[in-house]
């Protein structure tokens, strides 16, 4: 008992022991710090509808480098090709459907551009064809987008499919995107449609 008394010296005669005093001081300081950070952070918070939560591609900046296919953390990229029918020219010789230098306009493997066969087409009327993307097969490589934007109207474009996107804190495609086309956008513009403009 006597030894205990030695260890617990009193601070200037006050009834609080020295270690307790430091402990309380620490608690108060930590509390103040937590409160300050909390208040400061709370002031910066924006409502979910306003905050930029969703990763999306700006198709005006996209140069179809092909990194979307390989850089996404998903086994198959969350980026898929979309088709704006209202921009499409419904051409027979489609730069997004056929390889350049395609000899015959048929579905033979040597003429097709899409590596997974995700683009299909349907005859509408002479001379128009409707093109459709099967997004289950698409891997976001952007070959067709490149073909369509260099020879066609640019109706094919890449977008991040929000229901597939894991919404990483930092999008790994955005970090390697050469044109800085990927950024966070708000709920209202979670998709940048080409045919809704």
């Amino acid at each position: 008992m006597k030894k205990d008394k030695d260890n617990e010296k009193l601070v200037d005669g006050s009834p609080i022991k020295r270690r307790d005093f430091f402990r309380k001081l620490g608690t108060v300081m930590a509390g103040a710090g937590v409160a300050a950070v909390g208040a400061g952070g709370a002031a910066k918070v924006k409502g979910n509808r306003k905050a930029d939560l969703y990763w999306q591609i700006d198709h005006e900046k996209c140069i179809q480098c092909g990194r979307c296919e390989t850089s996404c953390v998903m086994p198959v990229s969350a980026v898929r090709c979309m088709h704006a029918n209202k921009v499409c020219g419904y051409c027979d010789l489609c730069g997004g459907y056929y390889r350049t230098n395609a000899k015959e306009l048929n579905t033979a493997a040597e003429n097709m551009l899409c590596p997974t066969g995700a683009i299909s087409r349907k005859f509408v009327e002479e001379p128009y064809f409707e093109y459709t993307i099967d997004e289950a097969l698409c891997n976001g490589c952007g070959k067709c987008v490149k073909g369509c934007s260099s020879f066609g109207n640019g109706s094919l474009y890449l977008q991040v499919r929000q229901e597939l996107c894991l919404n990483c804190n930092e999008c790994s495609i955005a970090k390697v995107c050469p044109s800085g086309a990927i950024s966070r956008v708000s709920y209202e513009s979670a998709y940048k449609f080409k045919d809704h403009a």
């Binding site: 493997a109 590596p115 997974t116």
Partner: peptide, 16 residues
């Protein structure tokens, strides 16, 4: 040649 391409294409897609 075209036949070869078609076969190869089918194989590679299946592999993928």
């Amino acid at each position: 040649l075209q036949e070869q391409i078609r076969e190869l294409d089918l194989l590679s897609r299946r592999a993928y």
